[in-house]
């Protein structure tokens, strides 16, 4: 399976297009980096890929390889769980502050004890309120929430930008291990070139498109 964005165009103000005829493909199990200076629509593309906003023109879809031919067959998105999931930069906003962490993590389905351990989440944190945990811990929850069989592609928009280097390495090691075991595609969006080079098998520069 692969995720394809075809001829995407989008602009916030009239006349000024942030994205113009952008084409982008991620194969399953592939880790692709996406870089560009600020203001080139990295985050906008991320939101379009994950279905948060509709592009003005163009389409995002999943494709499955056909057995007989070398062509691909389009898979329509269903109404339920979106197989393309987005992780934001600020986990505080991605978690309802009025929910305890147990409810937050089980909104999608309680992960196995093994996964909790791999993500470095302590059992006792599940009984806490989000305000009692730090950004690094909250981001572990956000990542783990998206790491389930239904997610085929993960878009990480500056996922670890606000975290310290050790937590950053921990979270990325978790995501990369999971992605290679479950053949999940990952899009890494970051302004940090060293990080993108470290993580990705392929890097796309949005200014070159």
């Amino acid at each position: 399976m692969r995720l394809r964005a075809h001829n995407i165009t989008y602009g916030y103000a009239k006349g000024r297009k942030i994205l113009e005829n952008v084409n982008f493909t991620v194969e399953e199990g592939e880790v692709v980096g996406l870089t560009a200076p600020s203001g080139y629509g990295k985050s906008t593309l991320a939101k379009i890929l994950a279905g948060f906003i509709k592009p003005e023109q163009g389409e995002v879809f999943l494709e499955k390889p056909e057995k007989a031919e070398s062509g691909y067959k389009r898979e329509p998105f269903s109404m339920g769980y979106n197989p393309v999931q987005l992780i934001f930069q600020h986990p505080e906003k991605a978690i309802n502050p009025k929910w305890k962490m147990r409810k937050v993590i089980s909104e999608v389905g309680m992960p196995s004890a093994q996964m909790l351990k791999a993500a470095g989440i302590k059992e006792e944190w599940l009984e806490r309120w989000p305000a009692e945990l730090s950004g690094g811990e909250l981001q572990r929850f956000c990542v783990l929430r998206a790491l389930n069989e239904q997610t085929r592609f993960l878009i990480a928009d500056e996922m670890t930008t606000m975290l310290d280097a050790i937590t950053q390495a921990q979270i990325w090691n978790l995501v990369l291990t999971y992605a290679s075991e479950h053949r999940m595609g990952v899009v890494v969006i970051s302004h940090e070139k060293i990080l993108v080079d470290r993580l990705c098998t392929k890097v796309v520069d949005l200014t070159q498109m």
Partner: peptide, 26 residues
């Protein structure tokens, strides 16, 4: 318009669920 309710939609939750679970406590 906060990210957690938008995410909840991507998790396949209904509007009714979001109103009841995400908004009511607020």
């Amino acid at each position: 318009h906060v990210e957690y309710t938008q995410l909840s939609r991507r998790f396949g939750k209904s509007k009714w669920y979001i109103a009841k679970e995400h908004m009511f406590p607020h």
